[in-house]
Design a protein around this nucleic acid. Structure first.
Lengths: 208, 208
DNA sequence: CTTCTTGGCTATTCCCATTAGCTGTCGTAC
DNA sequence: GTACGACAGCTAATGGGAATAGCCAAGAAG
């Protein structure tokens, strides 16, 4: 019975690799064990089951993503920084699709490590937005819009949702330009309430 | 052995309900069968397994979402229509979280029904964008940005990603206003390439 | 060398998806 | 009204993954 030299870090790293290759939702302990040349139950000596492994991968990924964003932002500001951060975000999502999806799940409030990693990302984003003169509630709204646009783009791209032949790079570049323009004139006035679909007209179809 | 009166439509409807309640990724044939008062293998008389059920739910959901968007857009134009459509999109995602996620997966090109449902949605979006004078490649880019923003917002909201106390309604309204402004001045010039995170600086961390 | 810790193992249980084959039911033809 | 055939739902069985319990040897500590 030669020792395999496992550790939590090794298992998590391999789990992240598996997630990137087969997809976040198809991540399986069996696959991780096989690739480590070990029987499945052995993993339980290092990780508390599949859910715990997912959480650990999320911590790893959030840390890596945060580091990528920080490196992209450093030394730049304004639209320059925004472009760099957006590009780094998309690059990470493309190169590590499994890890990337791991970063989306909201952390449990009592999960200190994951919360810290998420806050590091937020910190970089706030720094970028500060160059636009945004702070407080304005910054919160802008951050949400930025995250939505970036995550939506990365997520749809990863799911193969951009089927049309037009250049995806250009679409992304234009979206980022739109964000830049929006943040440049990001004032709190004149935002009429959005009409809710359900109340805008009686529904004839079977949506319950 | 009293007949349960099942049919493909009934199974798919119940599957959609289960997906909304327990989550798209936790959808299980066993749960659907139990709620229909039937043994699991009986479902195979109406549906070709779990993957096929997921596809059928996707068709159902895409049709419903498309109908909601169409109803929201009818009789409006410009920013008015944009607001209504965005609101309807988010309302659907909130009220049917499981079905909603089903609509994201890109349809197989040979899946006529699903492609048709997706194109119906696209048709409504194009109609809205036409009021901004957008067509051709401009419309494609704008559509991608719109879908990214809407999907990202809905997805993050559904995942509990907006943890801060600030009003989410207002954040959404402001994002839609940003889209409106962006589409109003959506010209094809002056979009410098986005800097890729990996090439912007040597990476010190272990991202592979 | 002895001892204790512990990493990896086998064995087992449970749950879900899937397939094979049986049987009772219901619509239909006569 | 009865016989028949299609078929809906069933039981049984297989395979795979997650998780737990308990064994046993490797390797460090003394």
């Amino acid at each position: 019975m030669p020792r395999a030299g496992l550790s939590r870090a090794v298992v998590v790293r391999e789990g992240a690799a598996v997630a990137d290759e087969v997809g976040w939702d198809r991540l399986t302990l069996a696959q991780v064990a096989q690739r480590l040349g070990v029987r499945l139950p052995s993993l339980y000596k290092h990780v508390d089951g599949l859910d715990a492994l997912r959480r650990d991968i999320a911590v790893l990924a959030a840390g890596q993503l945060g580091e990528c964003l920080r490196e992209a932002a450093v030394g730049r500001s304004g639209g320059d920084a925004l472009r760099a951060v957006c590009g780094a975000y998309r690059a990470y999502a493309r190169s590590h699709p499994g890890r990337y999806l791991a970063t989306i799940r909201a952390p449990e409030p009592d999960d200190a490590d994951l919360v810290a990693a998420a806050e590091a990302i937020l910190h970089t984003v706030y720094a970028v937005l500060a160059a636009y003169g945004l702070a407080g509630d304005d910054a919160v709204d802008a951050t949400r819009a930025l995250r939505a646009a970036l995550h939506g783009f990365a997520s749809l791209e990863g799911a193969g949702g951009f089927g049309m032949p037009q250049d995806v790079e250009r679409s992304f570049s234009r979206m980022v330009s739109g964000l830049d323009a929006a943040f440049t004139s990001w004032r709190s006035n004149g935002h009429p309430p959005v009409v809710d679909g359900a109340s805008s007209a009686p529904s004839h179809n079977a949506v319950s």
